[in-house]
Each structure stands twice: as structure tokens, then as C-alpha cells.
């Protein structure tokens, strides 16, 4: 690197540059102390569910092209991680969730003076997937799913059904901070058992697709969107809830046949944040777009006009309260 001994004529100064640089650096340091004085930048901060992430990503992408002076950021933290670590402490304006807000989260929010307002932004069919090569299985019952996914449950495929191969499962599931995890645990595992923890856990659903695609004996679950993006890479299982096998699809989710795994998706706005015109604009935009093909493009069922009207009413009521 800097092997340049003796040589070219020395120029004077460099002190001025040096001091200038030091000065700017100092100014940045000072900026830390004078945060309150600076004008609030126009920002919309969102955290939460990775299931809702594709909708939020599509909405935000269109939104900033229409309003280039507003900066939107979205983090994938899982529904629960988003509520308890970001939204309720007042660090984000919106929280995406693939389940309703829990009671303890409500309490945490109100303790911090945050009032969450719920907006429905789509419907999902939680999808159980296997490798396309797994030709021995097309449909499972909820009971079998419980056997596979509960703690100390099945280790090998043959443990569940005898005609399934005598090979170990490879598990890919949602991380515990994820709403998908909560929903799956609630509806499939139930109160009496724990969700197994020797699985590859992630709050990025796309990782699960990659994992399941990579090994013939893998099984995983996540939001329908990630399946519809990759119908050839993985195989979705039909679910038998006692009334025959039902394939996950936008239609069966919409009609309510795909039970018990079809579920509504939400975004929660902090009422206090709605006072910021940038946030209000974004939420209104989000609600409008949630009723369009933009949602089906990313693999979910858009909300109905009725739901959209309810959302807008809720938004307007909140705004009136604030004013």
C-alpha cells in the first residue's frame, strides 16, 4: 500500500483541509445533541409480519414514486417482534400483522400511550408445503400436522403414516416472532403442546421456499404468497379438516372453504402517528391499494369494497378524534 518514501515537493497547508474535515465531523457529533431543533423529516416507518411484507413492499414502492419527498421503510420483524419491540415502544408508525394484536401487546401499547388502529389489508391461505419430489403425500389432516410439528413429535415421515418413507423430516417454519408462527401454533398445535424447536426458523418466508425446494424430505409452512410465487419449486398440500381435502388457493381462501388455515392480514397504525400528514397519506394509499389487483399480484386475496369502506371509516374517525 503506502510505500511512497522520499520524492515530490511538499506543498504547504493541508491544515485548512484538515481543520475543515475535523469541523464537519464535529458538527455531525453536535447534531446528535440538537436533534429536537432540526425539522422532522417526512418518514413512514413500518415493521412487522413477513407475510404482509410483499403487500407493504408493493404499496410502498408505488407510493414513493407518487410522493418522492416521503421516505418509507419496512422491516421484517415478525408480527409479535414488531409489536413488542418497535410499535408499542413508539418506534414505528405502522405494524404489519398476520394475526390480531394480542392482549398483552394491547396493554404494552396503552402503557406507552400508543393506540393501535386495525386495518384489514388482505386474506391469506397459510400453506403447508413439501418438496415437489415428495409424491407420497398430497393431503394431510390437521391432526397429522400436529403430530409433525409439536415438540417431541414425529421425527421420520414413517412415524406419521406407515406408507410414507422411512426418512427424517427436515423442518422449515416461521420464527417465533412471526404471526404465522402464532397462528399456526394456535390453530394446529393448540394449547396442550408446544411447537417443536428443532426446525430451521426464519422470519423471512422466502428462506423456507429455498430450504424446502432443496431437499426431498423437507416440510414447511408460510403465507400463500410465497407459494404462488414459486408453484413449481415447491408443492402445496391440501388440508383435510374433516370435510375432505381442500387445496389452498385464493378462491378457497376467499370462500372460506380452506379452513382452518385461511386468515385475515392486518396493518396496525398508531393513532398518534396519523397526526403526521405523511403517515395519514400512506395509510389512505395502503387502504385504497389493498382492494386492487396489486394484492393478488403478490399472492393474496384483496379486501372487498365493504372492508375498504370500513377501513376508511375507522381512519376518518381516528383523524376526527385527533382534531
Amino acid at each position: 500500500m503506502s510505500r511512497d518514501p522520499s520524492g515530490w515537493a511538499p506543498r504547504s497547508v493541508s491544515r485548512r483541509d484538515f481543520l475543515a474535515a475535523t469541523g464537519v465531523a464535529g458538527a455531525i457529533g453536535l447534531a446528535g445533541c440538537t436533534r429536537a431543533a432540526s425539522s422532522e423529516p417526512k418518514e413512514v416507518n413500518i415493521a412487522g409480519s413477513s407475510t404482509v411484507f410483499p403487500i407493504a413492499e408493493a404499496v410502498a414502492s408505488d407510493f414513493v414514486q407518487e410522493y418522492p419527498d416521503i421516505n418509507v421503510s419496512v422491516s421484517q420483524t415478525g408480527s409479535g417482534g414488531g409489536f413488542s419491540n418497535f410499535f408499542c415502544p413508539g418506534m414505528t408508525d405502522l405494524n404489519n400483522a398476520s394475526r390480531s394484536i394480542a392482549e398483552d401487546e394491547q396493554t404494552q401499547c396503552s402503557d406507552n400511550g400508543i393506540e393501535p388502529i386495525e386495518f384489514t389489508v388482505g386474506t391469506d391461505a397459510l400453506t403447508v408445503v413439501v418438496n415437489p419430489e415428495a409424491d407420497w403425500v398430497d393431503c394431510v389432516t390437521i391432526d397429522e400436522l400436529r403430530q409433525i410439528w409439536r415438540a417431541d413429535g414425529a421425527e421420520r415421515w414413517s412415524d406419521v403414516r406407515e406408507d410414507w418413507p422411512d426418512e427424517p423430516f427436515e423442518f422449515y417454519g416461521a420464527a417465533t416472532v412471526s404471526g404465522t408462527f402464532d397462528y399456526f401454533r394456535e390453530t394446529v398445535i393448540g394449547e396442550d403442546a408446544n411447537h417443536r424447536n428443532d426446525y430451521s426458523a426464519t422470519e423471512k418466508d422466502r428462506t423456507i421456499v429455498r430450504g424446502v425446494n432443496g431437499s426431498p424430505y423437507a416440510i414447511g409452512y408460510f403465507g400463500f404468497s410465497y407459494y404462488s410465487e414459486n408453484p413449481d419449486a415447491i408443492k402445496a398440500l391440501a388440508i383435510d379438516n374433516g370435510e375432505g381435502c381442500v387445496e389452498p388457493s385464493l378462491e378457497t381462501a376467499k370462500s372460506g372453504e380452506y379452513q382452518p388455515l385461511s386468515r385475515p392480514l392486518f396493518t396496525y397504525a398508531a393513532k398518534e402517528s396519523l397526526a403526521d400528514p405523511a403517515v395519514e397519506k400512506f395509510v389512505r394509499y395502503f387502504i385504497e391499494k389493498a382492494a386492487t389487483d396489486l394484492v393478488s399480484d403478490v399472492g393474496y386475496v384483496p379486501i372487498t369494497e365493504e372492508e375498504k369502506r370500513k377501513n376508511l371509516d375507522r381512519l376518518d374517525t381516528a383523524l376526527e378524534d385527533l382534531a
Binding site: G82, S84, N85, A175, E203
Partner: peptide, 9 residues
């Protein structure tokens, strides 16, 4: 993995 979701908790 922890940092991605729990950084403020």
C-alpha cells in the same frame, strides 16, 4: 437472526 427482530426489545 436475533438482531433482525429483537434489536429494541
Amino acid at each position: 437472526q436475533l438482531g433482525a427482530s429483537d434489536v429494541t426489545g
